[in-house]
Design a protein around this nucleic acid. Structure first.
Length: 566
RNA sequence: UGGGGCGUAGCCAAGUGGCCUAAGGCACCGGCUUUUGAUGCCGGCAUUCGGAGGUUCGAAUCCUCCCGCCCCAGCCA
């Protein structure tokens, strides 16, 4: 089963109330709205990340819960930054997350002609004018946060003149920046967005979808609300930084002959510890080569998590668990990781793999013998079935599972001590063989044939169970392990640049790892548990010659805690 | 110093005047179970809701003042 095959409605519907759902509920109850239409409106200027997932789950989730629909709309009003590559990647990611927009795929650029007509309408009504001021001059006239602005000398130019100029802007008569169209609102407003905001600018650039059809483009403010109105969006949900824009959103809806009256609601965007979630920074990580690409398994992008082996269901679950509010929140990554472990624990099949091999010879096991032992694919799920694992005289175990001179609380293998090899036998260590440098290179053990399968007929117990792989049957692999990409909870939170907080140990590559043969058939998109270690998935770079696995996440490790306490 | 928001446990987050001596999750700490030191199970973890006053029989929820944090001065979204 691939992660995206899991149903999306299983996570609790109960208790997932939030202020936005309250509003939707109330709108429906009061009859203010008769249906619910939401939209997820990404700008195709980068890849989707976990923060977007929160918005996607919110928008598609509300639509589904209230029997409405959710549109996917590309907010493509800035050809200088947008690319087809991103349009494609975004669709793939939303789909992988498990959401379906049906026929409702839209582009703001589909509305350019209508938007242009509405801009003319505003001019005719005396509510917009073409301004000849330069960008610098406009900024100077805007005033400051505490001082009101001053009117542009072109503010009162006749509508006919503005109309003519606006048409000539469209015709391509002017250079970039020579003129802009501004809404005529209030230069003394405390809300800077209302100080005659620019709504159209000249941009001689090729658009991914409209090509060279246009050389003037509406900006976000002039495009978003009207696009919502055209699509009859009922609840336009965005993040907190747009709160200041709502009066402008409403002003445009009120002053334009739009077909419906959408409303905007804002919620707090997601922040995660030890990660960076701004497109600018993610772009920088990619462009400057700090990671391998947008889908580097250390990236908080949807594609990064997918390659890392995070199930889509876990990301959905996370988005549901964290809630929606207006308080600026930074979640601990552990909350996300807990969702990943939760899902994988119940769904991932188990296998055995040795990351740092130490050879073990079972002295009393016949030289040329080997046998196939039964192993459960998932002890927590009867239906997962079982598989055969080959056992023989020579095995690999994890180096960390042996200590020549163990401390009190270490109860794995040590000289003279008996432990269980999972699904196999009890073995007792008789000797540790070292090389000239004193390094342990091999263990000699004996096994008890009576304990086949892992239980002693005489009822004696053993304190530890180790995973292992038969040397003759082992499959080699390279394994990538990851730590957080940053060493600080809030990268760049101090005085320095966020790049200074990059964790130089975020990737470790282990070669010469030994896997049980069943892993030879590992499939892309399937995350499995390597018993006692963690969850792993086949990387996209794996070939039939070289298996490459990414560590999705480790198992909780209490021994590490005990060890650390000393 | 203008405008817009937010402040409930280490991190999220329910709660909208009495059933709150405040739900749930993550984290953390104990115990039990365990052929993964995993999982599971049980228990603990805010007499207090940014602070101070006030209204009320009664406040996290209402009022006043104060404090702290976030966003806004792109022809980005």
């Amino acid at each position: 089963m691939s992660p995206s095959d899991t149903p999306i409605t299983t996570e609790d519907d109960e208790g997932s109330r939030d202020f936005i759902r309250d509003i939707v509920h109330e709108d429906l109850n009061s009859g203010r709205k008769s249906s619910v239409v939401t939209r997820f409106p990404p700008e195709p200027n980068g890849y989707l990340h976990i923060g977007h997932a929160k918005s996607i789950v919110l928008n598609f989730g509300i639509a589904e819960e209230f029997g409405g629909r959710c549109h996917l709309r590309f907010d493509d009003t800035n050809p200088a930054k947008e690319e087809q590559e991103y349009i494609d990647a975004i669709q793939e990611d939303v789909r992988w997350l498990g959401f379906n927009w049906g026929d409702h795929l839209y582009y703001t650029s589909d509305y350019f002609e209508q938007l242009y007509v509405w801009a003319q309408h505003l001019i005719t009504e005396g509510l917009a004018y073409v301004d000849d001021l330069t960008a610098d001059e406009i900024r100077e006239h805007r005033g400051t946060l505490t001082e009101s602005g001053t009117n542009s000398p072109y503010r009162d130019r006749a509508p006919e003149e503005s109309l003519d100029l606006f048409q000539r802007m469209r015709a391509g008569e002017f250079e970039n920046g020579a003129k802009v169209l501004r809404a005529k609102i209030d230069m003394s407003s405390g809300n800077i967005n209302l100080r005659d905001p620019v709504i159209y600018r000249i941009l001689h650039a090729e658009h991914p979808r409209t090509g060279k059809d246009w050389c003037i483009y509406p900006n976000y403010d002039f495009a978003h609300g009207q696009s919502d109105a055209i699509e009859e969006i009922t609840h336009s949900i965005c993040t907190l930084e747009f709160e200041d824009h709502r009066p402008l959103y409403d002003w445009l809806i009120k002053n334009l002959p739009v077909p419906s009256e959408p409303h905007q609601y804002e919620f707090a965007r997601l922040n995660l510890t030890y990660t960076v979630l701004s497109k600018r920074r993610l772009m920088q990580l990619v462009n400057e080569g700090h990671v391998e690409g947008w889908d580097d398994p250390r990236m908080p992008t949807i594609s990064g998590y997918r390659r890392r082996g995070y199930p889509a269901a876990a990301i959905r679950d996370f988005a549901g668990r964290i809630g929606v509010s207006k308080s600026n929140a930074t979640l601990e990554v552990q909350a996300l990781e807990a969702c990943v472990r939760d899902h994988l624990n119940t769904h991932a099949e188990r296998r055995m793999a040795v990351l740092n091999p130490l050879k073990v010879v079972i002295e009393n096991y016949p030289e040329d013998q080997s046998e196939e032992l039964d192993a459960l694919n998932n002890p927590n799920d009867e239906t997962a079935g079982k598989r055969k694992v080959p056992f023989s005289r020579e095995l690999y175990i994890e180096r960390d599972d042996f200590m020549e001179d163990p401390p009190k609380k270490f109860f794995r293998l040590a000289p003279g001590r008996e432990v269980r090899l999972r699904y196999a036998y009890f073995v007792t260590c008789t000797e540790a063989i070292k090389d000239d440098n004193g390094e342990i290179v091999e263990l000699r053990c004996t096994y008890d044939p009576e304990t086949k399968g892992g239980n002693a007929p005489d009822g004696r117990k053993v304190k530890a169970t180790l995973h292992w792989v038969s040397t003759a049957h082992a499959v080699g692999a390279r394994i990538h392990q990851y730590e957080h990409l940053f060493t600080e909870e809030i990268p760049g939170g101090g005085a320095g640049d966020f790049l200074e907080d990059i964790n130089s140990n975020s990737l470790s590559i282990l070669t010469g790892c030994k896997l049980e043969p069943a892993l030879q058939n590992a499939k892309h998109g399937e995350t499995v548990q390597f018993e006692r270690l963690g969850y792993f998935c086949l990387d996209k770079t794996a070939t039939s010659d070289e298996l490459v696995f990414n560590q999705t996440i480790g198992l909780r490790d209490n021994w590490a805690k005990v060890k650390a306490k000393g």
